[in-house]
């Protein structure tokens, strides 16, 4: 026995739009549920009454006059027949062409600079930097570019504030050995 009400399915049931399985479920439920049977009956009555509501007759001459009115309102040639011929094109004036050329040139220049800047920036970012010891202290060095090619280290670029691991170790090692002695 099915206890759940099938009210939401009644519309589709009456229209014949339910799949066979759901239809069987609704029918089984209707056999046992008075409330759902009453709801289905109301829906049936509503559909029937709606179909029986007549549209009033607007009068014998109304529809004859309608043709006259519509004919009067559509007295011109239909637009789709007019639009079949392609519209004529006026030649563009000289000043308009000049403005267009200037705008195009400006756009091309802007695009060129945009590409140039983005390419330069990308090259900078792609380069890998490492800290290497040198005689003058720690030095920032380009190891290689993205494609793995070695790049010569720039001379004299000191990274201030970063202690050199070599210096610290050498100093520390001397001090330690002295203390042990």
């Amino acid at each position: 026995m099915i206890y759940r009400h099938t009210t939401p399915l009644h519309g589709d049931y009456l229209d014949g739009d339910l799949p066979p399985q759901q239809r069987t479920v609704v029918e089984q439920h209707l056999a046992t549920c008075d409330a759902c049977r009453a709801d289905l009956k109301r829906l049936q009555n509503l559909t029937q009454v709606l179909r029986e509501v007549n549209v009033p007759d607007p009068g014998g001459e109304y529809f004859d006059n309608l043709i006259e009115i519509v004919t009067a309102r559509t007295n011109s040639v239909p637009p789709f027949l007019l639009s079949s011929s392609p519209p004529s094109r006026r030649p563009l004036p000289g000043s308009y062409m000049l403005k267009l050329l200037i705008r195009l040139a400006a756009a091309v220049t802007l695009l060129f600079f945009a590409f140039y800047i983005s390419d330069y920036d990308q090259e900078r970012r792609d380069t890998q930097w490492t800290v290497q010891p040198s005689e003058n202290g720690p030095v920032a060095q380009k190891d290689a570019d993205l494609e793995g090619r070695l790049i010569n280290p720039p001379v004299g670029i000191n990274l201030v504030g970063i202690p050199s691991p070599l210096d610290r170790n050498s100093a520390g090692a001397v001090e330690d050995t002295q203390e042990i002695k």
Binding site: P58, V70, T74, P78, F80
Partner: peptide, 28 residues
């Protein structure tokens, strides 16, 4: 039109306008 609008005046307007629009848009 009458069943949607439930009055003659509007139904008449819709009827006329529908045929005028059909005339103008039959190309579509």
């Amino acid at each position: 039109a009458y069943r949607i609008l439930l009055n003659h005046i509007d139904a008449d307007e819709v009827t006329q306008e529908t045929f005028v629009r059909i005339y103008n848009r039959i190309g579509q």
